[in-house]
Write a protein that binds this DNA or RNA. Structure first.
Lengths: 243, 243
DNA sequence: GCAACCTCTGAGCGGGCTCTGAGCCGGCGC
DNA sequence: GCGCCGGCTCAGAGCCCGCTCAGAGGTTGC
């Protein structure tokens, strides 16, 4: 399990089921790994046909679906999926400049997509958002609010407050904080943070993580009991500001 | 569920039932998805015969009906539907230059229509309007008024006021604002807004959204505490003014 | 048939965001 | 005590994102 918080589960208590469909084995592997790390039950397929076959027996709650598959068009796969399982959530993967007109209207149906290259944290967050909104998980009630001590982060509203005071963050700062809050009390290495927050094709150094941690501290910890702690030689932890 | 507001339900508490009838699978899929996202119980049919068969068992509260079906004329389908279920609401889909005199006869009966290509937000709003007027939902009382802070939008009257002052908006501006107001305090990406407010066949870029947001701000926020906020890298949110 | 309005495209610009590099500090080991 | 290494912070360059303006084309209404 990844977090101290219970892993996201379905209403019957079993882990959420996700099917990953991508024809690039490397990418599929990375995504699959990240989702398993979330404690979910993950399977993968390399083609549309395989995906539909797998879906029939596996009955996933959500599908991560590359829109550029060798054999079939993304929207038609969606249609076939929905025909058998009307309530499955779909998260599309698409190239930045891909002809997006093929998926016009997708987000209006509650489905979502991320453009390649994406960060794994983003992918997971989007997927959780989909599942939450579909009412498919136990966390329905909790909504989109992450709370650690007097620090609150609303994923839907993109609002962050500490002790009630609003704090505004840049996109990267926001993602980094979300990531820390998701894994409260667990030390995350710079490499892990790099893998989660930055796109998988980011070539930069771990130094950026330090930099962004320092930005975050300025906005969140300055003048208060610190919540972000560094564990020398290992990484960073977020903890409620003791007492 | 999609909105903060509870899903529209029938007076007995079960979800509203909608039957979508269209012979273009892609369009039907998108429409079906959008309605399902509203929390409704949706089924679809690709032909008039299938529709009538489905209606007999499904007993929908409303039908979204393409007037140009391959096998039968839309109006005759309407007659047959009404013969069995006199109180069903019907929303027609029709081509822009369709014979209007026939349409006029229809709307006199309390039904409504939208012309292709339409926006999904418009479709949903019209359908809600129909159901509301038919007294088929719990929200009857709430009426067609959306309120956020001192900003009010009347969906039926197409009127908008802020702090009591009337504001007039172009059709697109109106739809965009309605969409933002329906999802108060939730960040909507430009893509989402594009999918909801613009027609499903719109090929343009997300840039238009920025443009219309700027128009809206001029009319709604200028000289007052801003309500429309941009979340860099993500989208836009509407929030009650100040604090 | 003309005028007013609406919608969208394109371009320019301003500013925030991201990342690089360098210097500094403090802890820890030799 | 000295040097090294890991982490922190500052400053700055470049880029990208979002905002706005101006204008073309289309539509509506008179």
């Amino acid at each position: 399990m990844n977090t101290r918080n219970a892993a996201l589960t379905r209403s019957d208590g079993t882990p959420v089921r996700v099917l990953v469909v991508d024809d690039e084995p490397d990418l599929a592997e990375v995504v699959t790994g990240a989702l398993r790390y979330e404690g979910w039950d993950v399977r993968s397929a390399g083609s549309a046909d395989a995906a539909l076959r797998e879906a029939r027996t596996f009955r996933p709650d959500a599908v991560v679906l590359d829109i550029m598959l060798p054999d079939r068009d993304g929207l038609s796969v969606l249609r076939d999926l929905r025909a058998e399982q009307p309530h499955v959530c779909v998260l599309f993967l698409t190239a930045r400049d891909a002809v997006e007109d093929r998926i016009n209207g997708i987000t209006a149906g509650g489905d979502d997509y991320v453009t390649k290259p994406f960060s794994l944290g983003e992918l997971v967050a989007r997927l959780q958002g989909l599942l939450r909104r579909a009412g498919m998980t136990r966390e329905r009630a909790a909504g989109s609010l992450l709370v650690v001590g007097d620090l609150e982060l609303d994923e839907d509203a993109h609002e962050v407050t500490r002790g009630g005071d609003p704090i505004d963050l840049s996109p990267t700062e926001f993602q980094l904080l979300r990531c820390l809050m998701r894994h409260t009390r667990r030390v995350l290495s710079k490499t892990q943070l790099l893998d989660l927050v930055w796109s998988y094709d980011f070539g930069g150094q771990a130094h950026v993580v330090e930099l962004y941690i320092s930005y975050l501290r300025k906005k969140i910890d300055s003048g208060r009991a610190p919540m972000i702690h560094t564990v020398r030689g290992t990484g960073y932890v977020l903890r409620p500001a003791h007492r």
